[in-house]
């Protein structure tokens, strides 16, 4: 068990964390690169920059849109995101680990706040799951992974909370801690390759949508060549 734990928080952590950071950087760069190329080839280069910017900001801080449609569900989502981002980043125990690993740490949450936020995240995560399950329109547009994600995301929160607060016999303590680490690492690995990548792509989504409707110049001819019908009318 000890060896497994050492492995999970040593090499495996470095591997998965690097995959996450580099993977997110990679898709960000690839998307920006693709956008630049799309812009360069676009036949119509009129982009409504200002409007796109405003929409991006609106979506990044969705104060205005919260009450728009299913306000409770939206609010649950927002609270879930707050907990999801703050607790792992600013938990004292985590920062302590960074401190011993890389030599410096940063601001940490008071213990009580961390506990409250953790419970809130767990509750909101469950709320998101049931909100999706319980709404017929959501069910239609949901894939399997959409249900699994909130559940997977709250596993490290539940296990982390158990490790930090509740009395667990040492034998199970290691097991719970291992679950905590491994589930977090699973999230790290999946992050850049699934829809959770929106954590870095979100600011780009509006501009991508806009650009996606700009067809490349002379695209009609290219399509004909690709379909082996050169010279055919479009």
């Amino acid at each position: 068990m000890k060896i497994l734990l050492e492995f999970a928080r040593g090499p495996l952590f470095r591997l998965t964390f690097a995959v996450m950071v580099l993977g997110l950087a990679r898709i960000l760069i690839l998307d920006i690169w693709g956008m630049i190329e799309a812009y360069r080839r676009a036949g119509d280069k009129n982009i409504p920059w200002k409007l796109t910017m405003i929409r991006t900001v609106e979506w990044l801080f969705p104060v205005k849109r919260v009450m728009h449609h299913r306000p409770l569900y939206s609010l649950t989502g927002i609270l879930f995101h707050i907990g999801l981002l703050t607790v792992p980043l600013f938990l004292f125990a985590h920062v302590q680990l960074w401190r011993s690993g890389i030599g410096f740490g940063w601001f940490t949450l008071p213990r009580l706040w961390a506990d409250i936020l953790t419970i809130m995240t767990i509750v909101m995560g469950a709320g998101l799951f049931f909100g999706r399950l319980g709404h017929s329109k959501s069910r239609v547009i949901s894939r399997k992974q959409d249900y699994l994600w909130p559940l997977l995301l709250i596993i490290p929160f539940v296990t982390g909370f158990i490790c930090a607060n509740l009395g667990v016999a040492p034998k199970f303590y290691h097991l719970v801690l291992l679950t905590h680490i491994l589930s977090a690492e699973l999230i790290f690995v999946l992050l850049p390759f699934t829809k959770i990548a929106h954590c870095v792509l979100m600011p780009l989504s509006q501009i991508v949508m806009t650009l996606a409707w700009k067809f490349p110049a002379k695209v009609d001819e290219d399509i004909c060549v690709t379909l082996n019908k050169k010279g055919a009318p479009v």
């Binding site: 998307d31 080839r41 991508v208 060549v225 690709t226």
Partner: peptide, 15 residues
Amino acid sequence: HVQPAFSRGGQTWLG
């Protein structure tokens, strides 16, 4: 002139 590939992030083909 080959079949286009889709970008992963936005599920749109760019470039």
